[in-house]
């Protein structure tokens, strides 16, 4: 009995059936074996190996930028879902809904969290790539994972870019006008790009203002309702879906290629 009273509340809780059924590996991780099991048996933690080289836990070496990018992505997902409860992607309501989000909705910093988080994620992704380059971590066997990383960079920028239109203010519409007009000049695929006029039979042009890359992007010949809806869907569903797939590949390969890179 004397032994039992010494046990803390946490330890007692850890012996209960409920705790054991949720957290495998048994008890509060105290000894080496339990600590290893707590990593191995957690669906989230087993993203990591059980043991790491010493320098892999030093912020001076890792900068933690990859982890922060993922964390900010999660913040953006959650705040984005919350924003979707109030925002309607139509020309009539989009702008006023954004105003309401700041002025009428309780805890009115959700849009700030989303916007500044988006800026921060672009920066952390860049710095992560910079660190990976400077430590030569893209070298074999990690070549392909670097490539996946470049795709993730592109998707991050695309996500940020599509979100830029949604407030439907002057800043948004002109940034996207300029951006999407570049698609108009894409070689062969844009109606003002080099080579587009070659894709024609006689007088019939296949690449016109109503059938080129820009048209597919904004869903019309002019920036309007269709563009807003397309960017909304891409921003909220399409691109997050794709980036999740590539992130899974990225993380899985980090593990399979031996975790963080180490000197040979």
């Amino acid at each position: 009995m004397a032994e039992q009273t010494k046990k803390s509340f946490l330890e007692k809780a850890a012996e209960s059936q409920v705790w054991k059924s949720i957290f495998r590996g048994g008890g509060v991780p105290r000894n080496r074996r339990q600590r290893m099991m707590s990593v191995l048996n957690s669906v989230f933690l087993h993203l990591h190996p059980v043991r790491l080289p010493k320098h892999a836990v030093k912020l001076k070496f890792t900068w933690c930028m990859g982890g922060l990018s993922f964390f900010i992505f999660l913040i953006l997902t959650i705040s984005g879902i919350l924003l979707m409860f109030y925002y309607r992607p139509t020309i009539e309501y989009a702008y006023t809904d954004i105003i309401d989000l700041a002025e009428q909705v309780p805890f009115g910093i959700m849009r700030e969290l989303h916007r500044w988080g988006a800026h921060a994620m672009v920066i952390t992704v860049w710095l992560h790539m910079f660190r990976v380059f400077m430590t030569g971590s893209y070298k074999p066997p990690r070549e392909f994972n670097w490539t996946v990383g470049v795709i993730l960079l592109l998707l991050t920028l695309m996500l940020s870019f599509t979100g830029y239109l949604l407030p439907w203010d002057q800043l948004a519409i002109w940034a996207i006008t300029v951006g999407s007009n570049m698609a108009r000049a894409a070689p062969f695929l844009g109606h003002e790009g080099p080579g587009a006029s070659l894709l024609a039979i006689g007088d019939i042009n296949f690449i016109t203002m109503a059938s080129d890359a820009r048209f597919a992007l904004i869903g019309g010949r002019f920036m309007g309702e269709a563009a807003l809806l397309r960017f909304y869907v891409l921003h909220c569903i399409g691109l997050p879906f794709i980036i999740m797939i590539f992130m899974s590949i990225h993380f899985w390969r980090v593990r399979k290629d031996g975790g963080i890179s180490t000197p040979v």
Binding site: A210, S211, F215, A216, G219, G220, R221, F222, G224, E225, A226
Partner: peptide
Amino acid sequence: MLRFFFPNVLFE
């Protein structure tokens, strides 16, 4: 699926 992105009628 690609063609799906090019609507036939535009509301402009």
